[in-house]
Design a protein around this nucleic acid. Structure first.
Length: 283
DNA sequence: ATGCCTATTATTAATAGA
């Protein structure tokens, strides 16, 4: 009976690689060591033609990507599968030229991979763009929730949600990652019903996903929590584990972000529908 | 207030990141 079989776990990860070609050895080593089932990548910093399809295929991953020269760029990898692309732009602004969103269905989960604008220097046009992007995200996220399906909105949000998510909150008060209006915009998503997966399992722990290259931030553990996995309720009920692969930040030629991951149990198998009969009072 | 580091692009310096 498949209904009696133990649920297997599906591992979904996000990793801002900060240059997919310069970071390829790190990425391949991490894929080999941790074998995530779905991976959202940000900051490819490469045009579509320079995406390392062959190397990732050799590593066992199908991929879709939305690149851009020099900056931005997002991709979704799936272990032993091809992600089914459902979208490659965040709705709400047809003039937005940045490659910051891509979305796919993988193994029954709709996965949105996002790279939110940084917003610095603030105030200024970059902050305005970030706030508009957050509004567009909230509008689209509400629409997704309405479908009642398993969805993960995953990536580099460039938002420090609370004081617990930054080594020294007072230093960041006027930074676009931590401004009150930016934090409020993130809270809007949570109030809609999205679950901050890592925080939901570890409500009180200091957890960072980013350490600046400057000022020996990694050595001092002067970090920020910027990379988040937001889950729709039908997926959040299946959450069984979460973590940050911090050690990757210490590898040679590391990204300034570390990979973050969750594990969700496979969807409970549908019970065979009983036929209407006098033996089945529910029928 | 600025540089501190790292990556990309274009050519030894500029721009962006967070």
């Amino acid at each position: 009976m498949d209904s009696a079989a133990p649920d297997r776990a599906m591992r979904i990860a996000t990793f801002n690689v900060n240059g997919i070609n310069g970071r390829l050895p790190v990425l391949l080593r991490w894929l080999e060591e941790t074998k995530p089932d779905v991976v959202c990548l940000q900051e490819l910093k490469a045009p579509d033609a320079r995406f390392p399809t062959v190397e990732l295929e050799k590593a066992g991953y199908g991929a879709i990507w939305h690149g851009q020269r020099s900056w931005n760029g997002v991709a979704i990898l799936a272990r032993g599968r091809e992600p089914i692309e459902t979208r490659r732009d965040l709705p709400g602004d047809p003039d937005d030229q940045h490659s910051r969103y891509i979305e796919a269905a993988v193994n029954g989960v709709l996965v949105g991979c996002l790279y939110l604008p940084n917003g610095n220097p603030a105030p200024g046009p970059k902050l305005d763009y970030k706030l508009l992007w957050l509004e567009r995200l909230a509008t689209y996220a509400a629409e997704l929730l309405g479908h009642g399906i398993p969805v993960a909105l995953v990536g580099d949000y460039n938002v420090i949600p609370t004081n617990l998510d930054v080594y020294k909150p007072e230093r960041w008060q006027k930074d676009a990652l931590f401004l009150p209006e930016v934090r409020r915009a993130f809270q809007v998503l949570l109030r809609q019903g999205w679950i901050d997966a890592v925080r939901s399992l570890y409500p009180d722990e200091t957890i960072y996903t980013f350490w600046d290259y400057l000022r020996n931030a990694w050595g001092r553990n002067a970090g920020l929590r910027l990379d988040h996995l937001l889950l729709s309720p039908p997926l959040a009920t299946r959450l069984v584990a979460a973590g940050v692969d911090c050690e990757v930040r210490g590898w040679d030629r590391a990204s300034d972000h570390a990979p973050v991951w969750i594990e969700v149990s496979d969807a409970p198998s549908r019970r065979p529908r009983r036929s209407r009969s006098k033996d089945n009072p529910d029928g």
